[in-house]
């Protein structure tokens, strides 16, 4: 089983299930996971004021399903698994399990729909549902994300998210607002031997903004991971920010010897006032041999 943490929700899924659809929104959204043949799990979340009336919710769901012609009333049954409430039944010739649970810390109603094309696996269902939990903030200031082979901590106050997921290229950018240059960015790139024609240090030097000045480069090796780090300063362009003209730029990149992917993390935060600049650590991990620094 592989752990995933998305939007402060942690869950464990079979190793060959991959996230094919995702939502960046916090108030409501959904993720869809698939095995190699079809969708297997859909997770939706919705901010709600308080715990919902599950009895009424389930009745509504069943009513809506039964109005369709693809399901007969006898197919559907109310069910419970651990502390999840749900319904199960055959819908459009595939057996589904649909469960919901309220998570108080996140004030969210989470619904998990499992698709069982080859018949229900009660043990797997219980394992998955039991694994869903809220990921608590780390040290009161970091949110943990674990997805697409990356495991990283991001500042809790960076609420704007821009994710770009392509085959062998994942970029997850967090900022205060759209267009704000203050950012924390995490990247994972694959097929490195096809496109990387220079050293990782040279690539990183080219990859970061050309506006970064006063660069200093260091390299350290941790358990076979040669981590190249560049620190520098970048001037902000907006005149409104004249008091905080400089951003502190910190970037690190390395190739993980275990999966052969190139990992890159870039942090740009205000040079003044922001106390985090002094204790900048690499808060991204690629494998068990390279845990992030807290």
């Amino acid at each position: 089983m592989s752990p995933w943490i998305w939007r402060n929700f942690k869950l464990e899924l079979p190793d060959d299930w991959e996230m094919l659809r995702f939502s960046q929104r916090f108030d409501d959204g959904r993720c869809v996971f698939a095995d190699r043949y079809q969708y297997r799990l859909e997770m939706t979340w919705r901010k709600v004021a308080g715990p919902p009336d599950f009895d009424r919710m389930m009745k509504d769901y069943m009513g809506r399903l039964e109005t369709g012609q693809d399901v007969s009333k006898s197919d559907l049954k109310r069910s419970a698994c651990s502390d999840w409430q749900g319904i199960e039944g055959t819908y459009r010739s595939v057996y589904h399990s649909r469960y919901g649970k309220y998570f108080a810390r996140e004030s969210c109603l989470v619904e998990i729909v499992l698709f069982w094309p080859d018949g229900k696996d009660a043990g797997l269902q219980r394992t998955i549902l039991d694994s869903v939990s809220e990921a608590a903030p780390i040290a009161g200031k970091w949110r943990r994300w674990q997805a697409f082979g990356m495991d990283f901590l991001v500042s809790q106050d960076l609420d704007n998210r821009q994710f770009k997921v392509d085959p062998a290229k994942v970029v997850m950018r967090f900022s205060y607002a759209s267009g704000d240059t203050r950012q924390e960015r995490f990247e994972r790139l694959g097929m490195v031997h096809n496109w990387l024609k220079e050293s990782v240090a040279e690539w990183l030097d080219r990859h970061i903004s050309p506006d970064v000045v006063a660069r200093s480069t260091t390299t350290k090796t941790i358990d076979g991971h040669a981590i190249h780090i560049i620190t520098g300063r970048r001037r902000r362009r907006a005149i409104a920010f004249v008091r905080h003209r400089w951003l502190r730029h910190q970037a690190a990149a390395w190739i993980c010897p275990h999966d052969g992917r190139l990992y890159c993390t870039i942090h740009e935060l205000l040079e003044k006032k922001d106390t985090r600049q002094t204790d900048w650590k690499r808060r991204m991990s690629c494998c068990d041999n390279l845990p992030y620094e807290q």
């Binding site: 190699r36 043949y37 079809q38 969708y39 809506r64 698709f115 094309p117």
Partner: peptide, 17 residues
């Protein structure tokens, strides 16, 4: 909107075969 399952039996098995 009536369908509570937004992903319905989506499979690419035929393509893979």
């Amino acid at each position: 909107r009536l369908s509570p399952f937004s992903e319905e039996n989506v499979s690419w098995r035929r393509l893979l075969e």
